[in-house]
Amino acid sequence: MIKLENVKTSYPNFSIVYPNVTFAKHKITFVTGKNGVGKTSLLKAIAGLIPYEGSIDYQGFATYHFQEPILFNRSVYENIIYPIKIRKLPIENYQANLMDYAKVLGIHELLSRPAKALSSGEKMKVSMLRSILFLPDILLLDEPTTHLDLESIEQLVALIKQLKSKITFIIVSHNKAFIESLQDATYALGGHHVYR
């Protein structure tokens, strides 16, 4: 569970105040609202990437998945196992899951390819798998359907459903079909800007 109390993020000309909320464990919550209401800032604050006032409480590790992810200059496989490697975890314990998830996403044949040579959609899926394979406690997905075609979105839905029992998902998306196929809860934002 993730508990937000009196959270406020500040920018040079305005602040965003977030309504208090508790995100349930192992549920999929969609953060909704118009452009500029602070959806991305919220995810980044939860991941500790930007400063904020108030309190954000949770146990475990939260990883934020960028809307425009960066892949490292190495193979797809090396990219995916990067979080496993830096944690010095035994890679062999993750091989079966890696192949399983890669197949669900349709990228299992790309594993030996240089990551930089992939299409934007493929990069998105590789990056997603990199953020998922090490099973973070919380996964914050920022517009994960960007660059994905309909088939790829279905693959992503299938993978998230498969992992729901292990990971708490908080997702920002404007894709209605995607939201409807996954949502357990919605956290609506808007009208909480404080202008200076």
Binding site: A47, G48, L49, T63, H65, F66, F72, N73, I86, R130
Partner: peptide, 24 residues
Amino acid sequence: QQIIATATTLGASKKHQLLLLFTE
């Protein structure tokens, strides 16, 4: 900056972040 941010979200330590930065 993007590499550091990505590495941070994946749980990389400062040492790993710098190493990654040099290779990238």
